[in-house]
Design a binder for these strands. Sequence first.
DNA 1: GCGACAG
DNA 2: ATCTTGTCGC
Length: 253
Amino acid sequence: MESLQREIADSAVFDDEFDFDPTAVQSPADSSQQQLTAPASDTDSDGSAPSDAPLAAGVDQAFLDERAISAVVVLQAGEVVERTHAVTELSIPYIPGLLAFREGDPIVAALETLDCEPDLLCFDGSGRIHYRQAGLATHLGVVFDTPSVGIAKNLLCGTPRESVDGRPAGWRTPIAADDAVDCADGTLIGHAYQSRQYESSGRHINPLYVSPGHRVAAETTVDFVAALCNGYKLPEPTRLADSYADEVKSKLL
DNA sequence: GCGACAG
DNA sequence: ATCTTGTCGC
C-alpha cells in the first residue's frame, strides 16, 4: 500500500492546474471575516448562482458499526446544487497514514452517484501533509483526476512555521516537511489556517490543517478554504456534507 | 523498544 | 470517527 501511495504522489500535481476562475470560488455573501477583494456582483439578480461558477463539493463520512455513510454536497457560489450519499461495508480498520484505503471505496461509491462533475473536491483529512505525500485528498483527487484539497482538524506530520495557539481568524502559517515526510526537509506541504476564533478570553479554537490534494498549489489551497469558510470553523461544503452524513446516519438507526 | 499518528 | 450532559461564552 505504501508503494502505491508513492506512485500516487508521483502522479499528483501540487500546482494550479484547473479551468475555472479561482476568484469565483466562494461561499454565499461572506458574513464575517475574510480580508478578500471587492464585492463582485457575480450573483444573478434573481439570487441564483451563476451557471459558470465553479462547483465545489464537500465530502465527509459518518460511521455506524462496520458501515460507512459517505456524503457529498455540491455548492455553486455558495448554493447547494446537489446532494448524494452511499452506505458501504467497511473492510479495513483505521490506520494513520492509510486512511484512504479505509474510506476510499465509500467515497468513490458516493461520488459515482453524482449527476454533476465538481470542479473542486474538498475532503476531510490530509492531502500532501502525509508521510508519503499521498493523503486521502491526494489519493482520491488523482483517482478522479479532479482538483482537490485536504482539510484536517489535526496535524498528521510536518512542522508549523510558527506556534499555532490562539491565533486570530484569518491567520495562516506554512507547514514544512520534516523527517516524517518523504521529501526534502522544509518543502512547503500545506498550511495551518485559523478559520474562526473566539473574540475574548476563555478557550480558543484550533486551526485547520489544509494541504493540496491534486492540481492545486499550497497557497491556492488556503485561499480556497478561506473563501469557502463562512463564519464556522469548517468550510461550507465540508460542514454541509458532515451534517448530511449525520442526518442519513440517524435516519438509518 | 518507545513515541507519534488524518478519520 | 464514536460514546455523551452540562456548561461557558458570544
